[in-house]
Simulated scan of single mutants.
Amino acid sequence: MNKIKQSIALMLVLILAVSLAACGAKPEAKAPEATNGAATTTGAASLENKKVALIMQINLGTFSAQYIEGVKEQVEKLGGKVTVFTAEGDLAKMSSNLDAAINQKFDGILIDHGTAEALEAGVKKALEKKIPVIAFDVDIKVPGVTVLEQGDQKMAELTLDKLSKDMDGKGNIVKIWVAGFAPMERRQIAYKAFMDKNTGIKEVAAFGAASQNTALDTQAQMEAILKKFPNKGDITAVWAAWDEFAKGAARAIQQAGRTEIKIYGIDMSDEDLQMIQDPKNPWVASAAVDPKDIGRIQVRFLYQKLHGDQTPEKIVLDPVFVSRDQLPATQISTAQLSEHVKGWGKSEQGYTEWLKQAEKPVNK
């Protein structure tokens, strides 16, 4: 009797197995493991808790502060954490910081300025370790690395065109500029083309150096220039290729009472905007990309890399021209600038639908 029961039970098991096979039932598939931040079949949730390194050549002034704020805001919205490495302008230290980030096994690396000579070896090492890299304002040409740049030539053209219009195409100017930075070199191309075309405008002095005290150093140098050209009409305007230059020059001109000299700059931060809005300040116009947007956009492309998406080799950010006559009499911040200047802030560059869905509110 027991043997009969065992036979019947065995037959039922066999029938059940055959039925399952006929219905196409299969063992549950195991999800593939993520490798170094690559996307998994579970989607954007797999990108939480990423460690992001921001490797900076120099962290100086309110522009850099707002840029870092944009980086951190976007990373935190995607559930990650940022560590900032700054080199105080020392390229050897910047290269060492990049190596440190690789050795500490960060999930992604952002680079801010620097040179190809100092960074390319480290960037290639990062890619070998499957760590994605997104750079800003550095002339790196390594396959697989996306490089962001502001529309530097366009920014120079916008400010120089305004300078020329305000001067009626003639007068003496001072150029404040420094070599050795990719964005500066691009701005210089536009400056040279402008000077070649506008023969009524003469450059009477040129200087500029990047340091941890750029604004103060510029102020001292501008004071010396003003003593060299003491008379009204000796200098009509100053073209400053960086907001730190514009700050220093503005303070020197204002303190000297040379209110006839106007400044046309590049870049924009809350401090810069406050100066441009001041009717007693010689700084009257600037062209820029929102520094917070630069940080946000750079992070978005890094997370696209982490997600396994293809990204372009070069991204050009669209600049905006800001002049005093566009602004209200009451003081505003860059967060309010979009209410008065079309195209400022809230850029959608680098956004994908899955990125928007992956974002979470950040507690301030």
Score class of each variant (00 low, 15 high):
360 K>S: 00
156 A>V: 08
13 V>F: 10
215 A>V: 02
230 P>E: 09
110 L>Y: 13
283 W>H: 02
146 T>K: 06
308 G>E: 04
182 A>I: 03
182 A>L: 04
191 Y>E: 02
147 V>R: 15
37 G>E: 05
172 N>L: 06
13 V>S: 13
319 P>K: 02
333 S>G: 09
295 G>M: 11
111 I>L: 15
201 I>E: 01
203 E>F: 06
257 G>D: 09
165 K>L: 12
95 S>R: 04
172 N>W: 02
283 W>C: 01
62 T>H: 14
249 A>G: 08
322 V>K: 00
219 Q>M: 05
304 Q>T: 03
303 Y>P: 03
43 G>H: 08
312 P>S: 13
78 L>S: 12
11 M>Y: 08
274 Q>W: 02
268 M>T: 06
35 T>Y: 15
63 F>E: 01
347 S>C: 08
259 T>L: 07
18 V>E: 08
305 K>R: 15
269 S>Q: 07
182 A>H: 09
99 D>F: 07
53 A>I: 01
332 I>K: 04
215 A>F: 02
256 A>L: 06
304 Q>S: 10
65 A>R: 13
236 T>M: 09
296 R>V: 13
168 D>Y: 12
363 N>F: 15
74 Q>S: 13
6 Q>R: 15
215 A>D: 03
269 S>K: 08
169 G>H: 07
348 E>R: 11
177 W>R: 07
342 K>Q: 14
208 G>V: 10
322 V>D: 01
165 K>S: 14
96 S>I: 03
364 K>C: 03
235 I>G: 01
269 S>P: 07
194 F>E: 07
338 S>T: 05
18 V>L: 14
106 F>C: 04
363 N>C: 08
2 N>E: 11
243 D>G: 05
56 M>L: 13
139 D>Y: 05
255 Q>R: 12
362 V>D: 06
200 G>A: 04
214 T>C: 03
92 A>N: 14
88 E>S: 11
169 G>Q: 10
318 D>H: 12
311 T>D: 04
268 M>V: 09
27 P>T: 10
197 K>I: 03
273 L>C: 01
362 V>S: 08
97 N>E: 11
61 G>I: 00
134 I>E: 00
245 F>Y: 00
115 T>E: 03
156 A>F: 11
289 V>G: 02
4 I>D: 13
182 A>N: 10
248 G>K: 02
